[in-house]
Every structure is written in C-alpha cells, then in structure tokens.
Nucleic acid binder design. Structure first.
Lengths: 207, 207
DNA sequence: GCAGCTATTATTCAAGCGTATAATAATACG
DNA sequence: CGTATTATTATACGCTTGAATAATAGCTGC
C-alpha cells in the first residue's frame, strides 16, 4: 500500500491555490457546496492539508472573501490619466469583464448573504465598501474641479453615492443576466446616465 | 413516556409558517445554517413535518425564494395614482422599509448566490427580474407620455435599465450599511438622480 | 548521502445533515 | 360517542461534514 506522490509547494503559493480553489467551489457549488473535501480536490491536494495552512475552514473562507473584494476593487482603483479619462475608465472597467461576470456576482452574493451572520465578514465588507466609495468620491472631486463645477464635500458625497449605486446596480443586472443586454449596452447606458447626473459631458466613449 | 401535545393547523397556514421559518433561518444563519431541524424549531414543530408538506427541503427552499421575490416586488407594483406620483412612490417604496432592510438583502443575496448552481432558482429569478423591470418600463412610458417627452420603446428600455440599476444599487447600499446614510438621504438622492436622468421634475418629495 | 524537519497523505471520529418509517394525538364525521 | 383519518411526533438510518491524529514522502543543510 503506497501513498500518492506529491509536490511540496512554497507556503505562499499553496495558500493562494487553496484560496483560489475555495472561490472556484463557492462560485460553482455555493457556500454550502464548498466543503473542505471539494476544495481540496479542486486544489489537487487532500483535505487534511487545509488545516495545515488555516486554523479553520471559516478562516480560510474569510481570507477568500478578502481576495474577492480585492479583485473587485483593485482594477477600478488603479485608473490613470486626467479626471475625465479616469471616470470613464472607472465606469467601463466595472461593467465589463473580468469584473462583471457571473462568477464575480456569485462570490459577492455568497459573502453578502453571510455579512449579517458572521461579524468577521461584516467587518471585511465595510472596509471594502468604504474604500471603494471614497476612491470614487475623490475621483469625482477631481473631475468636478477640472470641469469648473462646484465640488464641495457634500455635493461629491451625494454624487458618489448615486453613481456608486448606479454602477453597482448595473453591474448586478449585467452579471445576472448579461444575455438580456446588447454588447456594450450597459456601459453606454452608464456613461450617458452619469453625464445626465453630473450635468456634464464625460467625453467620447470611443465606440 | 408521553408525547408533546400539538395543534393541527390547516394546510395552507402551516405551509406558510414553514416557509416563513425557512426565510427567518436563512437570514439569520445563512443558507447552510438553515437546516431542516432549525427551521422546524423556528416554526414550532418537529423536523419530520417538513417532509409531510414538501417533497424535499430543496423544494421548500425554492418556494421560499418565490415568497421573497413576491415580497420584494408586490409593494412596488401596486403603486397608484397619476404617473408622477407612481414614479415617486415606486422609488420611495423600494428604498424604505420594509423592502429596504438587512433581512431582505440577506435573503436576496443568499438566493442570488445559488442562481448559478440551481437551475430551478435561476428560472424563478429571471421571471421575477423581468416582471419587475417591465413594470418599471411601463411606468416610465406613462410618465414620459404625460410629460410630453419622447416615449418610444427604445428610450423607455434604456431609462428602465438605468433607473432599475440606480434603485437596485441604492437599495443594496442602504440595506448593507444603512447607518452610513442620514434619514431619508437615499430617497432624496434617488429622486434628484432620477430627475437628472429623465431631465424632468418628478414633483416635491414632500419633505 | 544521510539526518532532521515538515508539508502532505491517510485514516479516524463525533456531530449534524436530509430523509424514511412507525407510533400516536388531534380532529372530523356518522 | 365511537371510529376513521391524518397531521404530527419520535426515532432511527446512512451519509457527509469539519476536524484531529498518526504515518510518511519530499526537501534542506551538512
């Protein structure tokens, strides 16, 4: 009776593989289908290894949630260029792949549904949401200032809430039923909606 | 050793109690915490009874999802009065309790996270979403016509997508972190945003 | 090339899961 | 008031779960 041969991976790498496998399983089978054994199979290891890298399954799931938030926010936060370009890119990035796809929203929803249940996840969520909205608010402040429009904190706050809501809402719609929209339709609707909200052109959408 | 005494409930009533208990458990403990035993405790019966009313736990959960969608859509669909009033009420209803609260979004998210996994839930979701957006689109058509604005199908479709996204997004924000907003702030932002989008006043927000 | 360290596998365990079945209490009806 | 019906309880079963433990294979440094 001989054992499987295996590869000894460096710590960071294996941890990341396990987290990625966790997310794969959650998006495919749901939170309750993401068992330690399924996750291990997906990662190509045995179940026991999970506990070698994480104190518990719950801790691993929490770290996986951090990874999800990071992937949802990092792309949008590293926009560059003049304020107008950054605003356009911010909108486009959030409403096209890879941010907008069915896997993303499955993960997002799975964790959101646990926010009320698990205080740890709740805290992770709040941090991520505030960081996201604040970066949008800063972006809007730059944009309005560049356009010579009033950009006091209260105005920016209201615009940030509205535009964040709009983009999030369209993101959800697109993720859940992308086939109900034409190619580029959501981005186009978002662009013209933001223009209407701000009362300003945000430039050509280079279609 | 004598048994518990119990009350024989009429069929419809008990079914509804079980569905309500299912939703309570999902919102409090998440989908994986909503076990047959927990649900039975919440409903004040024993676990075996579930299978007397439903073919399986999965079937009960699916019916519970139908109930969630109904509760999220019915209030908004029965607005009355002139188009302007209906549009205002539609927005306000969706962004105040009982539609906008943390229990609602927990339930919504729990099911959304399963839409990819379970084709039955997927079908229930799509029906509900389309009905919701179509009723908004009809409402907008009436409103624009009353205002003497162009109300062709394509325009209404784009407005319906945008406003549906805006309201949904604000609903999510408010449900998840209501304490980050002032009383009535989300509704006020939604009202003025919709005015900006449509380029029309929608009347006083009676504050 | 061997000794020691540890990442990994293999196995086991108790608890909890959804479900099936049998006993029984509550009601309806003649 | 007695009897049939069935909604409900009680109990048991097989399976899966997250976790603990022991054995071992793969590296690293000497």
């Amino acid at each position: 009776m001989n054992r499987r041969s295996f590869h000894r991976a460096p710590e960071g790498e294996r941890r990341q593989e396990l987290i990625e496998a966790t997310l794969d399983c959650i998006s495919e089978f749901g939170l309750k289908g993401a068992t330690v054994r399924q996750i291990a199979i997906r990662a190509g290891v045995t179940a026991g290894l999970v506990r070698h890298y994480f104190e518990s399954k719950d801790q691993m799931v929490a770290e996986a949630y951090r990874a999800v938030i990071a992937s949802l926010t990092e792309k949008a936060s590293q926009v560059e260029g003049d304020p107008e370009t950054r605003l356009r890119d911010f909108i486009a990035i959030n409403l096209t792949e890879p941010v907008a796809d069915s896997r993303s929203i499955s993960l997002w929803a799975a964790f959101i549904s646990q926010v009320r249940v698990d205080p740890v996840l709740s805290e992770i969520h709040r941090e991520g949401y505030l960081a996201f909205r604040n970066s949008l608010q800063d972006l809007l402040a730059d944009f309005l200032a560049a356009k010579g429009k009033p950009a006091d904190a209260e105005t920016c706050r209201a615009f940030a809430i509205a535009i964040n809501g709009l983009v999030d809402g369209l993101w959800v719609e697109g993720c859940l039923a992308g086939d109900l929209f034409r190619e580029g339709e959501l981005v186009a609707i978002a662009m013209s909606s933001v223009e209407a909200l701000l009362g300003t052109s945000i430039g050509n959408t280079k279609q």
